[in-house]
Design a protein around this nucleic acid. Structure first.
Length: 863
RNA sequence: GGGCGCUUAGCUCAGUUGGGAGAGCGCCAGCUCGACAAGCUGGAGGUCACUGGUUCGAGCCCAGUAGCGCCCACCA
């Protein structure tokens, strides 16, 4: 070690992540560890496709948690020697990105229509070039070992090719079709959105009752609605066929107030006779249910509200041009004036809102592209039923299957400019339609009549392109080396909110196009909530910025904290866990200083080899055994996606057993320069660093740089496999007895308020405990003479000026109380004949043995 | 309306197949002992939401009740 580094190690008593992390990340990148060759088979290799963040995105806690989990597994498998690829890239995020750029345009006083489509898309690309790599840089701060040299974007040339190919094949199969159908219209983004992008919220509306006179009679049918303005597009009134009140009216007509249109009275089972008056106004143009009923009965579909949210000519001169809200007011006023309004009451119900823009959905009939899903779903259902794709935790498997079994057509067109423009061309002259399967082979003129072609204006839903992420990123549809080496990928971690939106669709497209499932394991992780239990969200101001946490505590601390707090259920963000991670990094640094600055003669050519360690003393055998058991257990937990327990178990082995006990036990040997213990400590340190590296890559790599056994970076060091030859139950039992006795002696001292410094004199009955017991509890156990004043296990404490007799008496009194309670408990249990008869024999025996011990101790302490 | 999950120490959460309730943080007391005060040692603190059942024995299994949360759903 050169003098400068030695000095740093000697003088730095606090680990400073900010000084370390960027430098180390640079070293890894420089070495190219994260850019594996496209060799080997998917079975031998390890690969993960990152859930592609939006180009507009900034790293949030969800990314940080998900990234910490993926990186832990990728790093562990890389260290195991597997050719490991973590595919990275970003999603073009149609609506989000388009609105960001539109906002900057607005700031310049322009809108996209002024620019025109081509110019606007150019602007979005410029924006993407400038800001689109922000989130990728943020993943580096986290320490994510992604392949940054293979970064992909869903609008890359190659990726677009894959999207076209998929569209064409689905079209040719007849799955993709165009239809005039009711869709969720988002007035915010001025586009249709899919069912999955809609969220229902509870709102309080006014439920209006309106009287529709029945033609040729003096009867009225009273209907109820929360959207009176839609009455302008009513084309029928429906009643339940079994409703006796209205049986005679079926087939007759109502007259629509304000408009005068004749509305047939139809019978439909969907109508609930119990609700309201049992009569339902039917507006096929503006209500999804009514749309279904309308199609069933062949009703006219009138569109009274346009895509701009304003009333159309169909609504009549009086209302045309008004916004829906204005029209509602006007319609209510007009009805009231005519006495047709027979009721108003507050009404709480759930209504659809756009997940993207937050605006209330306007159900609208429009010409859109759809993809039929049932044929694609069938094999994807089978793959999960048969566990070819395993979804954990188990309840999500059921949720997936239930949704898939009732899957509905997917509206895939969006009225945006930013995205994959649908590869369909129309010939207006002869009504021919063309679909391109390659962007390079877009048709130019109509093959039938030679006429001009016009490309579809709409783009595809962003999720259409993310659905093919795992194979499109590897070069599909070309037969690339990457595809052969890394598909199927090994596993996927995800938040449950995109289980349907993304995961299910990847399984469907993977089976359909890439010939295999996209991954074998899906792990649905918890949602990290804000500290107060609310969801983290920008708009609520409840978000916690991972980058700020990294600035303050370091990436390792955040990674450890997130993994430790993760769970199968949702968790609140815990500052304490992140602090625990920070403390762990610091402790690791300082324990390493102790070892590295004092170890002697252990850096020969065989350094770090198992043959160099010595296990003659019980405490050495104990810690070596515990180390290997911890490796076995932590590794198994990581492989089973149990990140929280893996992290906390590694923590507690290192902190409690290695630092609190073993280091304290061996300090005298270490300071004497004993080579044996030095070799053991270096071995233990090496294995601990390697074990922790997947969870805390930076601090472990930094410490490793000082380790005499180092031949290269820890990032590519071999991951420890548990050496079961070192398991040693006898040594474990022996040392644990010593530890237990030390604890009791310390507790006794504290209880009788002996000054911390004073060494007490005592002697031992029977076999002498291990050397460390007396040293760590500050007892001289070789005392002689005098009557003992107290007993702690086999130790007889001798009188001393430092011991307060009254305190000892009080302590004795307390202990006797405890013992009597224990004796009573055990006696009670053993007096229960059924317990003795039916409980397992060893349990009963154990209870008897305990009773004996308690009685014996009580006797010893008799007054 | 249907489904799923949660309720354990002051706080945030663990508790594997039913056999004397754990961690981290916080709190109290004592420690500048040659790695670390982001540290060390000791300690206090729990009717495991409630009710009933099964069992020799229940935080864990069963039934129900209450509260909280999430997902799905076409009753105006």
């Amino acid at each position: 070690m050169d003098a400068h580094r030695l000095k740093k190690l000697e003088q730095t008593t606090r680990y400073d992540p900010s000084e370390v992390e960027a430098r180390i990340f640079g070293e890894w990148m420089e070495a190219g560890y994260f850019h594996p060759p496209a060799e080997g088979t998917p079975d031998e290799n390890f690969s993960v496709a990152i859930p592609p963040p939006n180009v507009t995105g900034a790293l949030h806690m969800g990314h940080a948690l998900n990234g910490s989990m993926q990186d832990a597994l990728v790093r562990m498998n890389r260290m195991r020697g597997r050719n490991s690829l973590w595919i990275l890239g970003t999603d073009h995020a149609g609506i989000a990105t388009q609105s960001v750029v539109e906002k900057t345009l607005r700031a310049e006083g322009k809108d996209r229509h002024e620019l025109g489509r081509e110019e606007f898309v150019k602007r979005v690309w410029e924006w993407k070039e400038e800001y689109g790599s922000r989130i990728v840089e943020q993943y580096k701060r986290l320490g994510a070992s992604c392949d940054y040299e293979r970064e992909r974007f869903t609008l890359d040339d190659g990726y677009v090719k894959a999207v076209y190919r998929v569209f064409k094949q689905l079209y040719d199969k007849g799955y993709i079709y165009r239809d005039n159908y009711m869709v969720n219209w988002d007035p915010g983004s001025h586009s249709a959105i899919s069912d999955l992008e809609v969220e229902n919220r509870e709102v309080t509306d006014t439920l209006y009752s309106i009287d529709y006179p029945v033609e040729g009679t003096d009867r009225v049918l009273t209907v109820a609605t929360v959207r009176p303005e839609t009455m302008l597009a009513d084309t029928a009134v429906a009643v339940n066929p079994d409703d006796e009140r209205y049986g005679d009216l079926i087939g007759q007509f109502c007259v629509l107030p304000l408009v005068g249109r004749r509305l047939p009275i139809v019978a439909d089972e969907h109508v609930d006779p119990e609700f309201g008056t049992g009569a339902l106004k039917i507006t096929p143009g503006h209500d999804p249910n009514d749309f279904e009923i309308g199609r069933k009965h062949g009703l006219e579909e009138i569109v009274a509200i346009g895509p701009d949210g304003r009333l159309t000519e169909e609504a009549g001169e009086r209302f045309a041009g008004m916004t829906a809200a204005e029209a509602q007011e006007a319609v209510v006023a007009a009805l009231r004036e005519r006495g047709a309004l027979s009721g108003e009451e507050p009404y709480v119900h759930s209504v659809p809102f756009s997940h993207r823009s937050g605006e209330r959905i306007e159900p609208l009939i429009s010409l859109q592209w759809f993809c039929r899903m049932d044929e694609l779903a069938a094999p994807a259902i089978e793959a999960v039923e048969s566990d070819r794709v395993k979804i954990a935790p188990g309840q999500w498997k059921r949720v997936y299957l239930e949704w898939m079994r009732e899957i509905r057509p997917w509206c895939i067109s969006r009225q945006l400019w930013w995205g994959h423009r649908i590869p369909v061309w129309y010939c207006d002259a002869c009504e021919e339609t063309y679909v391109a399967e390659d962007p390079a082979a877009a048709p130019e003129r109509c093959g039938a009549c030679g006429g001009e072609l016009r490309q579809e204006e709409d783009v595809l839903d962003t999720w259409f392109s993310s659905a093919i992420w795992p194979f499109a990123t590897l070069g599909w549809p070309e037969d690339t080396p990457e595809l052969r080496a890394f598909y199927p990928t090994s596993f996927l971690t995800t938040a449950r909110e995109i289980l349907f939106l993304w995961v299910a669709r990847m399984i469907m497209t993977g089976l359909e196009f890439a010939g295999d499932v996209p991954f074998h394991d899906v792990y649905v992780h918890s949602v990290v909530q804000a500290r107060d239990g609310r969801r983290m969200s920008k708009s609520l101001g409840t978000g916690i910025d991972p980058l700020e946490e990294i600035d303050v505590h370091g990436a390792d601390a955040l990674r450890f904290g997130l993994l430790a707090m993760s769970s199968t259920q949702d968790v609140r963000y815990s500052d304490a866990k992140v602090q625990q991670g920070r403390d762990l990094a610091n402790k690791l640094w300082n324990a390493s200083r102790l070892i590295l600055l004092n170890a002697k003669g252990a850096d020969g050519p065989k350094a770090g080899h198992i043959d160099t360690i010595s296990a003659r003393r019980p405490e050495d055998r104990w810690i070596l055994s515990r180390m290997e058991r911890t490796i076995a257990s932590v590794t198994a937990k990581l492989d089973a996606y149990d990140f929280a327990h893996a992290a906390t178990e590694a923590y507690s082995f290192f902190w409690s057993e290695l630092c609190d006990w073993y280091l304290e036990i061996v300090k005298p040997r270490l300071y004497e320069g004993e080579e044996e213990v030095s070799a053991n400590l270096l071995w233990l340190l090496e294995r601990t660093l390697a074990l922790l590296h997947p969870i805390m890559p930076f601090v472990s790599e930094e410490v490793w740089s000082y380790h005499p056994s180092r031949r290269g970076h820890l990032a590519v060091h071999s991951f420890p496999a548990a050496e079961d030859s070192l398991f040693d139950p006898e040594a474990e039992a022996e040392v644990e007895r010593g530890i237990e006795l030390t604890r009791r002696l310390r507790a006794w001292r504290d209880m009788v308020e002996v000054p911390a410094k004073s060494e007490l004199s005592a002697r031992v009955e029977g076999e002498a405990p291990q050397e460390f017991v007396g040293r760590l509890s500050r007892f001289a156990l070789d005392g002689d003479g005098g009557d003992p004043i107290a007993a702690v296990g086999p130790v007889r404490v001798l009188a001393s000026a430092d011991i307060d007799a009254a305190a000892v008496a009080a302590r004795l009194q307390k202990r006797r109380g405890e013992l009597r309670a224990e004796v009573a408990r055990a006696e009670g249990k053993l007096a229960n004949e059924k317990f003795v008869a039916r409980a397992p024999a060893e349990l009963v025996e154990g209870e008897r043995a305990k009773l004996e011990r308690y009685r014996a101790e009580l006797e010893e302490l008799a007054e």
